[in-house]
C-alpha cells in the first residue's frame, strides 16, 4: 500500500529536488512547503518562486528505531539501524522536516548547523524516490 503515490510525489519535485519556496507578494515571507494562501498573512495567494539555500540549524530531532519506522522505511532501519529525523530551521525562516544522513545518530544535537543534499529517500511502487536530506555543514556555522 503506497502512502505517497508516484503522481503525488511528482507534483512536489520542485520542493524535494531544489527546495523551491513561495515568496508571498504581499508580506514578503517565504512559505515552504507551499500553501494555497500565504500562512503568514492569510491574505494573498500570489507568490514568486525562490530557491532556498538549504542551510539551517537543527530545531529538534528524533532517532527512529525499529518500532518507530513506518513500514516503507522498515527496511532502511533494518539495514542501517536507528536513523535521525530532524526539523530544521532554514536560514530564510521556514522550518521543514527531513532525515539526516552522514552523521552518527549519537552526534545529532539541537542547534547543529546542517545543509540539504539530494539523496535517495526510499522505494515504493517499484520507483526509487529522491529528495533532500540534511547533512552536517562542514566547518560549522
Amino acid at each position: 500500500m503506497a502512502h505517497v503515490s508516484v503522481p503525488m510525489y511528482w507534483r512536489t519535485i520542485p520542493q524535494r529536488y531544489r527546495l523551491v519556496g513561495m515568496q508571498c507578494k504581499k508580506c514578503g515571507k517565504v512559505n515552504f512547503p507551499p500553501k494555497g494562501v500565504c500562512k503568514y498573512c492569510n491574505a494573498s495567494s500570489e507568490f514568486a518562486e525562490v530557491r532556498l539555500s538549504g542551510k539551517g540549524k537543527v530545531h529538534t530531532f528524533t532517532l527512529i528505531g525499529a518500532g518507530g519506522a513506518p513500514p516503507e522505511f522498515a527496511e532502511q532501519e533494518k539495514a542501517g539501524g536507528v536513523y535521525p529525523v530532524t526539523i530544521v530551521e532554514l536560514e530564510e525562516g521556514p522550518k521543514v522536516i527531513g532525515q539526516m544522513a552522514d552523521v552518527n545518530p549519537k552526534d545529532v544535537t539541537i542547534g547543529m548547523p546542517v545543509r540539504a543534499e539530494l539523496r535517495r529517500i526510499y522505494e515504493e511502487e517499484g520507483v526509487v524516490r529522491y529528495g533532500f536530506k540534511f547533512v552536517p555543514l562542514e566547518g560549522g556555522a
Binding site: 502512502h3 505517497v4 527512529i64 519506522a69 529525523v85 522536516i97 529528495g131
Partner: peptide
C-alpha cells in the same frame, strides 16, 4: 501530514 512528515520516515 503524508507528503512531508511521513516521507521523512516518521509515524
Amino acid at each position: 501530514d503524508t507528503e512531508y512528515e511521513r516521507l521523512a520516515g516518521t509515524t
